[in-house]
Amino acid sequence: MSRVVSFEGLWCVFEHRSGQLVNALHDVNFEVQPGEFVCVVGRSGHGKTTLLRVLAGLQPPTAGQIRLGEEVVEGPGADRAMVFQQDTVFPWLHVRDNVEFGLRALKVDDEERKSTTAHWLDAVGLTDFADSWPRELSGGMRKRVALAAAMAVGSDVILMDEPFGSLDYFTRRNLHDVLLDLWEETQKTIFFVTHDIEEALILADRVILLAEGKLVDDIPVDLPRPRDEDVRASAGAVDITKTILAHLGITEEEATQV
């Protein structure tokens, strides 16, 4: 079931509003094994989101391709569910219907749909809010709904585009725990785009660094889990942080000043 995701010579050229052409992705090549937790890190505007959108099938690449196992990505599908940066919980559906949305599209039978929905609502701790309107939930709770909806469709690859960027620190830490629990339970491949190095250190098996659309480094994060404060303060973690900062064009001195 689980498949290797391979990026092969991926190019993406955008037209700027002034008519100028910009390379959002510049010949990106790498491979991700099943069950890996990959964080894509880079400055804003350097192609992170584009990479994820091309993988989701929302954006055709200008050249190159992405393969899941043998299958080439042609368009969006339930095998690559995505959690977006903005609030994408449908405000016109109850929480339960939001989680069921993908299952209904897959024409899963009623029994299974209900039990799956109940399971994922429980997993993100929203069983009590199943019949609420999204407008009645807080931002963090709505993110959990989006997470549950993405998990419920049963895809083996989950794409997350700075999903927790707009949340406060405590909610974010709490959602990291939820996400890691779900990941350990399901062993899905997760692509997680972020600009937050700490977040990447907490979550990732592997960090992909993008700068000006180019893949500049591919850093394995072999720190023990759970990645609590001590682990993140260890020498290995600090080395990784330094490497990332150096690639992003920030020297150590600059970083400490910030």
């Binding site: 989701a56 099938g57 929302l58 368009g75 969006p76 599908g77 339930a78 095998d79 690559r80 569910a81 995505m82 977006f84 903005q86 609030d87 994408t88 449908f90 016109w92 559906l93 949305f101 993908g102 209904r104 599209a105 897959l106 989006a146 909806a149 993405a150 469709v153 895809s155 794409l159």
Partner: peptide, 29 residues
């Protein structure tokens, strides 16, 4: 209708027709 709703529905595996009736139509109201 904000693109993000449509994209979200598509990545959850909804077909074009389904996305249209369940997402675009209520979103336009």
């Amino acid at each position: 209708v904000p693109d993000r709703y449509i994209e979200s529905a598509r990545t959850l595996g909804a077909s074009r027709l389904r996305t249209y009736f369940k997402v675009v139509v209520p979103g336009a109201m």
